[in-house]
Computed example of a mutant assay.
Amino acid sequence: MRFFSVAVLVMLSLLACSEVFGPNETVSRAYGDYIYASKEGALESGWLPREIPVSAHEIVESHNVDSNEMWVRFNYENEGMSGFIDGCEVRSNPLFPNARRTRRNAPWWPERLMQGKENEVLVGYTFYWCPRMIHASTELPAQVAIDHPGRVIWYWVGRQ
C-alpha cells in the first residue's frame, strides 16, 4: 500500500510539473509541397521563409517558439532556386546549429550539419549565409546548406 501511495504521489508530481512548465515548446510539421504548406498557413505564420521556392516538396520543419530557432528541410527542383538564395553569400565556414538543441528539437536533422562537424568536408554541399530571410513580417538571418546530389535544402535559423 505504501508503494502505491508513493507511486501516485510521483505521478501527480510529474503531472503538476508538466502543467506548471507547460507543453513542449517545439512544434514539428511536414508538408507534401509548397501549395499544401501555404494552405496550412506555414508561410503566413513565419515558420517557413517566404522565399521558399514554389517547387519545394517533402517539406519538414521544426521550430521552438521560445527560442525562435527553426530547422527546415525540403527537396527542390531547379525552378525558383535563384530567388531563394538571392541576397545570400556563399560561406565556406558555416555556423552549424547547436547539436544538443537540434537533436532535441529536430531529431530528423542530420548529425553532419550540427556543431562539432564544422571541419568535415561535405562533398556536394554549398553553404550560404543569408542576412535577411523573411518570416511572416520579420527579417531573420538564416543559413542554408544545399545538398546538390540529393537535391535537398537544409535551412536553419537561431542561436549557434
Score class of each variant (00 low, 15 high):
Ser18Arg: 15
Gln160Trp: 14
Tyr125Gly: 10
Pro107Phe: 08
Asp147His: 13
Gly150Ala: 13
Glu40Ala: 15
Arg132Pro: 02
Met11Asp: 09
Ala30Phe: 02
Ser67Cys: 05
Glu89Ala: 06
Ile52Gln: 09
Phe3Val: 15
Arg100Met: 10
Ser62Arg: 02
Ser13Cys: 04
Arg2Cys: 09
Asp147Met: 04
Leu15Asn: 14
Phe4His: 10
Asn75Cys: 05
Ala16Arg: 05
Glu69Ala: 10
Val60Arg: 04
Glu139Gly: 12
Leu122Phe: 13
Phe21Pro: 04
Ser67Trp: 14
Phe96Lys: 01
Ile134Met: 11
Ser28Arg: 12
Met114Leu: 06
Arg112Asp: 13
Met11Phe: 07
His57Lys: 03
Ala56Val: 01
Pro97Thr: 08
Asp66Glu: 10
Asn24Tyr: 10
Cys130Phe: 06
Ala106Lys: 06
Ile59Ala: 00
Asn75Ala: 14
Ser92Asn: 09
Ser38Met: 15
Lys117Val: 12
Leu113Cys: 09
Ser18Met: 03
Thr102Cys: 15
Tyr128Phe: 07
Cys88Glu: 00
Glu89Cys: 06
Phe84Gln: 00
Ser82Val: 11
Tyr36Trp: 12
Asn93Arg: 10
Tyr36Ala: 14
Ser13Arg: 03
Pro97Phe: 02
Thr126His: 14
Met1Glu: 11
Phe127Ile: 05
Trp156Lys: 01
Cys130Ile: 01
Gly83Ala: 03
Glu118Gly: 11
Ile153Phe: 09
Ile134Gln: 12
Val10Gly: 04
Asn98Cys: 13
Gly41Ala: 02
Tyr128Gln: 00
Glu19Val: 13
Leu9Phe: 03
Val27Trp: 07
Ile146Arg: 13
Ala42Ile: 05
Ile134Ala: 06
Ser38Tyr: 11
Leu140Pro: 03
Gly150Thr: 03
Asp147Ala: 02
Gly46Lys: 04
Leu15Glu: 05
Arg151Lys: 13
Gly150Pro: 04
His148Asp: 12
Val157Tyr: 10
Ala56Lys: 00
Gly41Phe: 03
Glu61Asp: 04
Ile59Trp: 02
Val123Ser: 12
Pro23Phe: 08
Ala106Gly: 04
Val60Ile: 08
Tyr128Ser: 01
Val54Cys: 00
Leu113Met: 08
Leu12Lys: 04
Arg2Ser: 12
Asn24Val: 15
Ser92Tyr: 11
Glu44Leu: 15
Tyr155Cys: 00
Ala7Gln: 05
Asn64Trp: 02
Ser38Ala: 08
Pro23His: 08
Phe4Gln: 10
Ser38His: 10
Pro149Phe: 05
Ser67Arg: 04
Gly41Trp: 02
Val20Pro: 01
Ile35Asp: 15
Lys117Thr: 15
Arg2His: 09
Gly116Phe: 07
Cys88Phe: 01
Leu43Asn: 02
Arg29Ile: 07
Leu15Phe: 09
Ile35Tyr: 11
Phe4Ile: 14
Ser45Pro: 02
Gln160Thr: 13
Ser67Phe: 05
Met1Lys: 11
Asn98Tyr: 11
Ala136Thr: 13
Asp33Trp: 00
Trp156Asn: 03
Asn119Ile: 11
Glu139Asp: 11
Gly124Ala: 13
Ser137Phe: 03
Thr126Lys: 09
Tyr155Met: 00
Phe4Thr: 14
Asn105Trp: 08
Ser62Val: 00
Leu122Pro: 10
Ser5Val: 10
Glu139Leu: 05
Leu48Met: 05
Gly80Gln: 06
Asn75Ile: 01
Thr126Gln: 06
